[in-house]
């Protein structure tokens, strides 16, 4: 399948995502946001970074672009859309995914490795995963997931901050997210957003302990038929 890795001004992780997708044997290319044509691609990954300088609110300016209007159409038509970190913020600001991402409760930029428990196995990235706890890095200042209907958020949640055995507890919640939510998907599971960076956990050389759980997630893109 052809995957577009979107580059907005201020996106910083597009090369890492591209390389991780290549490692996962997923054909992709980096596309500048103004040159993006949704008809040409079966899936989109919106990488992390600081699109448009994080002005106003992280993700809010990118959400106003024609690129995101096209990506919303793709999402509505069932195509695969993945948002990582700032990409997740953009999806939420665009209304493609529900909820909001607010400043971390401790008001700090967090950069650390965390464990997340997989809460849903019916999304494009988690279908067929052979483990239910993943080790991934986070790096964000505005990652506190919020939803005014916690019951709905619970159903949409894909990844929950946990300990290494998958126990979900407030102690393992780095940023104050409601219900420890680190990532959500839409009901259909074709649109998924997450604060952790799977592309930074895709190579033994650069991962904390040699694990490559991020690659397992990104391989989900391979499972989707072109």
């Amino acid at each position: 399948m052809r995957v577009a890795v979107i580059k907005f001004p201020g996106t910083t992780c597009e090369i890492d995502v591209y390389k991780a997708l290549r490692e996962a044997n997923v054909e992709s290319e980096v596309v500048r946001y103004k040159e993006f044509d949704g008809d040409k691609y079966n899936a989109v990954v919106i990488p992390g970074g600081f699109s448009f300088g994080d002005y106003l609110r992280a993700g809010s300016i990118a959400a106003n672009t024609d690129t995101m209007r096209q990506i919303k159409e793709m999402a509505d038509s069932g195509k695969v859309v993945v948002g990582i970190c700032n990409g997740f913020q953009i999806l939420v600001e665009s209304g493609i995914l529900e909820g909001a991402l607010l400043p971390n409760l401790n008001m700090r930029f967090l950069s650390k490795w965390v464990y997340v428990r997989v809460n849903r196995f019916d999304t494009v990235l988690t279908k067929g995963l052979n483990k239910n706890v993943l080790r991934l890095p986070i790096a964000h200042a505005e990652g506190r997931y919020y939803h005014d209907k916690p019951e709905l958020a619970k159903r949409l949640a894909v990844l929950l901050y946990s300990d290494e055995r998958g126990n979900v507890d407030e102690r393992y919640n780095p940023n104050g997210s409601v219900l420890n939510i680190a990532g959500i998907a839409n009901e259909e599971g074709n649109v998924i957003g997450m604060m952790p960076h799977p592309e930074r956990a895709s190579f033994k050389l650069t991962s904390q302990d040699g694990s490559i759980d991020g690659l397992s997630l990104l391989r989900g893109l391979k499972r989707v038929e072109a």
Binding site: F52, Y55, L56, I61
Partner: peptide
Amino acid sequence: DPEGETIQRYVVRK
């Protein structure tokens, strides 16, 4: 004011 200029250019002007 880059923030104001960005909001003007990419959001308001549209």
